[in-house]
């Protein structure tokens, strides 16, 4: 387990005026956070509790220090979030003193905002819940932790990703994005998704977590878990995950590479129990993090593109 106090790393000191790749990525992200805070009336940070969104919190903290983060944090609660993730969320929200808004999928179902037909995954129900929350509070910019290396539909997404009044993304109508001049012009009812981690890779995220030494959910580290195998993924034993015929539960040594809804997020067998061991594991991994552990991206080649069009993170 890493320590829980965020410490400040040594400042960059380069006689030849070179920045390391992490310093340069950080500088780019801080610039994006400040640009949005300066130009948008009502930004919000979408926070899942996963490693990417914790890096986002850290960057937002740095961008406005010593002032507080000048916008609230929004979490979409699927009802099946890992308890360790919620714990980390509370730790960060309390430490930074930011306002937390929880948009609950359960509540959205009860209010008739989204329809749970028993076949649609929680992940998809999140889309309607999220869009409703953005609309209700009138947020004009929503920060997300998406990275271009995650998936090929994301490889072409802008840092400022325009959403129409229906919250939808039109990949053919994307605005050209040049230099570091971001275009934040929107019309009433539209909003912008902002991706400050666009140019980070999975390895950069881990290197940064290692360098900064801050707390992430314990399930990213190796632990014992009762799991069963489905479609080549290891899923957690849970009442929301009823076993199908032929599936058997066993206890294994695992860790998570991504953190989402526990009905869809699989873990991988791993003994990596420190950041350095995780970095070593990620560096030699032969399967993308989403391909390995995300049921939601496996349905079709364009699964992510379709969800993004509808308004996914």
């Amino acid at each position: 387990m890493p320590d829980t106090t965020a410490t400040s790393p040594a400042p960059p000191a380069h006689a030849d005026y070179r920045l390391s790749q992490l310093d340069e990525l950080e500088a780019e992200s801080l610039h994006i956070f400040r640009e949005v805070a300066a130009e948008f009336e009502k930004p919000v940070l979408m926070f899942s509790g996963g490693k990417d969104s914790i890096v986002m919190m850290r960057l937002a903290e740095k961008a406005f220090y010593p002032a507080k983060i000048p916008f609230p944090v929004l979490q979409v609660d699927t009802g099946y979030d890992f308890p360790e993730v919620l714990e980390t969320r509370d730790h960060w929200v309390n430490r930074l003193g930011v306002r937390l808004i929880v948009a609950s999928v359960e509540q959205a179902i009860a209010d008739g905002v989204v329809v749970d037909d028993g076949k649609t995954s929680r992940n998809r129900l999140q889309i309607g819940t999220l869009l409703n929350a953005i609309e209700e509070d009138g947020f004009t910019a929503a920060f997300g932790g998406g990275r271009r290396d995650e998936e090929k539909a994301r490889a072409k997404e802008r840092v400022y990703s325009h959403r129409d009044e229906f919250g939808q993304w039109d990949p053919k109508m994307q605005r050209p994005e040049l230099w570091d001049l971001y275009n934040g012009r929107i019309r009433a009812g539209e909003h912008m998704r902002i991706f400050p981690l666009s140019n980070w890779t999975e390895l950069d995220i881990w290197d940064y977590i290692g360098r900064e030494g801050f707390q992430i959910p314990s399930i990213y580290y190796s632990h014992q878990r009762r799991v069963f195998e489905r479609d080549g993924m290891l899923l957690t034993e849970h009442e929301a995950n009823p076993l199908r015929k032929g599936e058997e539960v066993s206890e294994r040594t695992v860790r998570f590479r991504t953190v989402g809804d526990l009905t869809l997020t699989g873990c991988v067998e791993s003994t990596a129990s420190t950041i350095d061991e995780i970095i070593a594991e990620v560096a030699i991994a032969r399967v993308t993090e989403r391909g390995a552990t995300r049921g939601d991206d496996r349905f079709s080649e364009a699964a992510m593109e379709d969800r993004k069009r509808e308004g996914y993170f």
């Binding site: 090929k152 490889a155 072409k156 593109e305």
Partner: peptide, 24 residues
């Protein structure tokens, strides 16, 4: 096909947008 990320690009067999790729 690795860089043709969007469905319309795959359908037309061409890259029409800027794609960002990462390696180290």
């Amino acid at each position: 096909l690795l860089t043709d990320g969007l469905r319309s690009e795959r359908e037309q067999g061409i890259t029409i947008d800027v794609a960002y790729r990462y390696f180290a």
